[in-house]
Amino acid sequence: MEVDKGKGEAEETRKVAEADRDTVTLKSSDGKLFEVSKEAAARLSTVLAGMIAGGSIDDNGTDLKQIGSEALENVVDYCNKHANSIPSAALISSSISFNTAPFKEPEEWERKFVDRLSHDALFDLVEAANFLGMERLLDVTCHKISEMMKGKSPDQIREVFNIKNDYTKEELEEIRQELAWAFYDD
């Protein structure tokens, strides 16, 4: 009787502990596992928030088949860094809508975070942020990519992004004539 009671209590506390676990495990397309703070995940990603609320989080690793391990590592890294940084008003307002609300400049640590990424990693992270519904991360990464275009000529932009010029000479000339004010430097 005594024993049974103790067992029941233990069962109970284990269940509580499980529900209270403050991390979730995510699994990348290539099978790697990552732990991320549950609170940060729910706050930063609408998709993860939905999964946590709906109970579809798998303790053995929630499958995210669209996201490679490198991008997921960056996502998790971002969430953890975010959890440690002081939440600012900028982040709260930017999560309303990034098309209508004015974009808040990235904070210092966010800037450093995207600056160290390679070109490919950056685009993978954009895709992952989009998939997971992480508006702030999408904002910050898109901002970084747009900064790579600023002050550049069309030729330089093509070089940076490895884009093939599919305009004819005549079409380009027409654009340059119509919009001469935008092409001051070349």
Partner: peptide
Amino acid sequence: ACLVRAASACK
């Protein structure tokens, strides 16, 4: 101006 230059990078 940035936008116009970006738009003339590709179709």
